[in-house]
Design a protein around this nucleic acid. Structure first.
Lengths: 165, 165
DNA sequence: TTCAAGTAGATGCAAACGCATATACATCGG
DNA sequence: CCGATGTATATGCGTTTGCATCTACTTGAA
């Protein structure tokens, strides 16, 4: 690890953090978070990308929350009828989560409007080429290695967001 | 806003969010957050970059916390003797914050070790060219425009992190 | 089969958060 | 100079978070 490489890495990370904070704040100002908060949406969105019932632990790998916090967030969403919890037939300890129809609708409604805000904010600053580069670099940065398992099935079945508004 | 541009923007944003979450989790696992949490460090670090006493409101533009939460975090840090609050002579409402010597030491100690972790994590996945691109793109993305003020003095006096370990 | 060790999720509790609002000072028109 | 409006930070309060721990189930080896 050379001195200059370390410096480059830290500068890049700080820039990413700054951009993240700025965009989050900007997007949080959108008037679309009355019914679901950004964190709740994060869970709904993540679930919407899964074609089959998902374990809480699996969700927890994608969501930046402690396991107990996610567990309770899931509980609240279930009480609100947005997601469904069912026992895992293959593992008595596990809980499998899936969106209810209401949850799917809610996710689509909020997601559509949210996507507009994201597009506006990002496309206002970056060229299409830059957006592509950013995505590619961030994907590399997410590095399959972290997360320990070398055999991660990195949700190759992407189909990120539907702007069906 | 073309359909493809919107899609690119949303894909890029999702990739950024994913990378952010993955790195944060990875870095949070470093055993250096006993004395200051990541959020506390964020404040100490931000202050360390300011050569003169800084307003809470100004800090709040860089830190992803509500104003009341930041206000109380600052209070806790002050009680622990890491930062100092003083009245702003030019504005009776304002509070000016600055690191104490202990705060500066703490920031440097943690910062040095943190920077090692960042360097390891980032440089392990990206080439130097990619790090430079990521930084440049993220800086653009932070867009001086958001934040309303067109006359922001974007801390041009950078000198991000000292890896003096 | 049995039991020790491991893993998934839930729960108690104190700390921290966000929202609404209060307080104190600034600023500006009259 | 004075009140109306605006801004900076603090505080009350209900909600959410994280840490430690608990429970329930699985796994693997004797």
């Amino acid at each position: 690890m050379t001195r200059t490489s370390s410096r480059l890495a830290n500068d890049a990370w700080e820039a990413l953090l700054t951009a993240h904070a700025a965009l989050i704040k900007h997007l949080a100002a959108d008037r679309i978070w009355h019914e679901v908060t950004m964190r709740e949406y994060d869970v709904l969105y993540t679930l919407s990308k899964c074609d089959r019932p998902t374990r809480i632990g699996e969700l927890n790998r994608n969501v930046l929350l402690s396991q107990p916090a996610l567990s309770r967030l899931v509980e609240r969403l279930a009480e609100r009828g947005l997601i469904e919890r069912s026992a895992d037939p293959a593992d008595g300890r596990g809980v499998r989560l899936s969106l209810t129809e209401a949850g799917r609708l809610q996710q689509r409604r909020v997601g559509g409007r949210h996507a507009v805000g994201v597009a506006r904010a990002v496309a206002a600053e970056l060229s299409e080429e830059e957006m592509r580069q950013l995505e590619a670099i961030c994907r590399k940065l997410s590095g399959a290695d972290r997360a320990a398992g070398p055999d991660r099935n990195d949700t190759a079945t992407s189909e990120p967001e539907e702007v069906t508004t």
